[in-house]
Amino acid sequence: NLFRIFGDLSHLASIGILLHTVRSTQSIDGISFKTQALYALVFMTRYLDLFTWHWVSLYNFLMKVFFLASSVYIVVLLQQFRTKNPIAYKEMVLQDTFKIHFLLLGSLVAGLCFHHRFTLLEILWSFSVWLESVAILPQLFMLSKSGRAQSLTVHYIFALGLYRFLYIFNWIWRYVSEARVDKIAVVAGIVQTAMYSDFFYIYYKKVIRGNAGNLP
């Protein structure tokens, strides 16, 4: 359905925006390394079914490979700044202070409590869904602490939030047309979209209405 396609395209766009800007400006100002590392972990634990011959479709396969490869590539790209631009790297590390072990532990507990089947793959899948729902927090925390946002970060978060928002409509669509519902994905997806709601409000004020100014 269209919500799903545009949701996935929006997700692709967010990665494209991030990669393009980092590569063309050679700047990592405002990007949370922790959020990017968490996304790499999300895709590594979710797409293990790539190795189990669980074929869904070519679309599904190619997207999984892309998300897995691009998330790892972004982590490597950011790590290269460690030697390439140590000052910028150090600045990022100093701002990137969110304690992610709570997110990891919380997602692990949620994965162990809520899953479709008690198998390693299913628990890791559930862990990845819960972790994805909170993985943006270090980035949002960094944004609110610095009080100013690079247009890169703002557009990146907007595209990512739009992807989650569209997925909710995709689930409503699928519930109506296929009577299909994945409770874990839906609950985690709503949690994740809620994470962005404050950001959407700021984005609306700042970008759409053109109010330049500091973020609260």
């Binding site: 869904v56 479709h116 997925y167 519902v181």
Partner: peptide, 10 residues
């Protein structure tokens, strides 16, 4: 509503 048998979403 039925539960998904496979994870066909990303």
């Amino acid at each position: 509503a039925k539960r998904p048998a496979v994870h066909d979403e990303l």
